[in-house]
Design a protein around this nucleic acid. Structure first.
Lengths: 184, 184
DNA sequence: GGGCTAACGCAAGGAATTTCGCGTTAAAGT
DNA sequence: ACTTTAACGCGAAATTCCTTGCGTTAGCCC
């Protein structure tokens, strides 16, 4: 969702109301029974407004997800590489396992083509790159970002997608062990 | 989709017509503009029939995907572990990169809860397990199925999902290298 | 071949979604 | 303060989706 040309009070308020309604409804029912009229009623915003601003349900949900992702917890900085990796892996596993996890995974597919989502992904990649470089500067050796993504992040999403059973903190730590073993 | 109680000529024909229409339409437009009335018109099968047999669009697409997956290429048996792994990884990368790749990835989420899909996944897991055990019996050492899935399969889907740019054969081979390195 | 009935076609009806025109509100600019 | 106009509310129309009842077709079984 692009910045409104008139981002003042009312527009922002309407946006927030609608966002809250979406999160609210998704916490008490599943995705496929969600509809724009329903969101309109819950939020107190008129249907026509929602249709005019977002157009489709996908675009609206995408907007909500991006809003939350941008407010998400920063990448960890614990002082050690293992600490950072474990903290990140456990946090990610918890997010995916959380009530909005399915929404994140789904949004990852829906919104891969939107410019905003690409921007978020590259921003996030830069942050992770920084995390790895901090470790390198501490003399903990260099870690490839792509390898980190493939060995740690990919399996977390994979489990959530195919087995519908997200991994726990202990499993997240075995992923970290695997990555560290590969670096030797 | 369960086996029809009367699997004879007409039912099978209707099913095939509808399946073809789905694949046909998905090749010329994207997912969210697909609808059952549209499929009915394209296939020449009446709306009511489609609704009665499949109920929802998700169930129908799921049926199509399962049909194709079950016809898919078997797990490789090249005589060496590396050969099997590379063949599988390259094949999977190609499938995900293909025109129906996005459909597979999406269906993986939609249908994770259906009984059929679970059955397919476990069947596939057994086949892969056999592949790994063949290598073990040849004296190539044992490989954990979960590790195989996480190190090779997960990254393939991950790239397709988040970067919308599936990996190539060369990259697939680096995944295999990574797994083999972990086994030492 | 002949009866049985699941599956299909058809058409109408109902329900939900999406759009549209118009008046009103309130944010932004001067 | 005053003007401008983007964004919203409202109601109704238009479109699309989904269901239902009934007659017909064609596999299946004897």
């Amino acid at each position: 969702m692009q910045q409104a040309r008139r981002p003042g009070g009312r527009s922002a308020r309407v946006r927030q109301q609608v966002h809250e309604a979406v999160l609210d409804l998704l916490s008490e029912q599943d995705w496929h029974s969600l509809s724009i009229p329903q969101i309109a009623e819950r939020s107190g915003v008129h249907q026509a407004t929602v249709y005019r601003r977002w157009g489709t349900l996908e675009a609206l949900v995408d907007d909500v997800v991006m809003e939350r992702l941008s407010q998400e917890s920063p990448v960890p900085d614990t002082g050690s590489l293992r600490g950072d990796l474990e903290a990140y892996a456990v946090q990610l596993a918890a997010d995916v396992a959380g009530p909005l996890g399915a929404l994140y995974v789904r949004a990852a597919q829906i919104s891969t083509r939107t410019h905003e989502h690409q921007t978020y992904l590259t921003d996030r990649a830069v942050q992770l790159q920084d995390m790895l470089e901090r470790a390198a500067k501490r003399g903990e050796g260099s870690t490839d970002l792509l390898e980190f993504m493939e060995v740690i992040i990919a399996p977390v999403y994979y489990h959530a997608m195919f087995f519908n059973r997200p991994i726990g903190p202990d499993h997240a730590r075995t992923l970290v062990d695997r990555l560290l073993r590969l670096r030797k």
